[in-house]
Computed example of a mutant assay.
Amino acid sequence: MGVTIEPWLREILRCPVCRNELVDASGPAGPELQCAGDCEEPGRRRAYRIDDGIPVLLAEEARVFQV
């Protein structure tokens, strides 16, 4: 993926909506952090983009997807 987030930061990052852990993933626009659990509804999750190595953890800018 090419994006490196410091290990100490990775440990404390959580989804701002459901507080679940975030995992590294690759989405339609490139590297992102995806919620490891359901957000608000069963099977619904959020993905947060990474801009220049900085995760954008804004719920209103997250990509919502179904698993």
Rank of each mutant, 00 (worst) to 15 (best):
M1D: 12
G53Y: 06
E11L: 05
C18V: 00
G27K: 03
D51Q: 15
P7M: 03
A25D: 10
V23A: 13
V23L: 14
V17Y: 04
V17R: 07
L58E: 15
R46A: 14
R14K: 13
L57S: 04
M1V: 04
V64H: 12
V67R: 14
V3F: 02
V56H: 08
P31M: 03
E32P: 07
A25V: 04
I5A: 11
A36Y: 09
E61L: 15
N20Y: 10
C18Y: 02
A59M: 05
A62W: 03
A47R: 08
P28Q: 07
L22H: 07
A62K: 01
P42T: 05
V17T: 11
M1I: 12
I50A: 05
M1N: 12
E60I: 08
P28K: 07
S26M: 11
D52K: 12
T4P: 07
L9C: 04
P31G: 09
L9R: 13
R10W: 07
V64E: 11
G43L: 04
A59S: 14
L33F: 06
E40H: 11
G37W: 00
A29L: 10
D52I: 06
A36W: 03
Y48Q: 05
W8C: 07
L9Q: 08
G53N: 12
E21F: 04
C18Q: 05
R14I: 11
P28C: 01
G43S: 06
E6M: 04
N20T: 05
P28W: 00
A59H: 02
C35E: 01
F65M: 06
R63C: 08
I50P: 01
C39D: 08
I50D: 01
V3L: 12
W8A: 15
D52V: 08
P7Y: 01
V17S: 15
G37E: 00
D24Q: 06
R49Q: 15
L22V: 02
L9W: 00
I50V: 12
A36T: 14
C15L: 14
E41V: 07
I54V: 15
L57F: 07
F65R: 04
L33M: 13
V56W: 11
A47G: 15
C39R: 00
A59C: 02
C15G: 03
D38W: 03
R63Q: 10
R45W: 00
G37R: 06
E60W: 12
P55K: 10
L22T: 04
D24M: 08
V64D: 09
L57D: 09
A47D: 11
P31Y: 04
E41Y: 06
V67D: 13
R45I: 00
R45H: 15
Q34F: 06
P55I: 08
V17M: 03
I50K: 05
E11R: 11
R14E: 06
E40F: 01
V64I: 14
C18T: 06
Y48P: 00
L9N: 02
Y48I: 03
I12L: 13
N20F: 03
T4W: 03
L57K: 08
E41K: 09
A47F: 07
G30C: 10
V23N: 11
P55F: 07
R49Y: 13
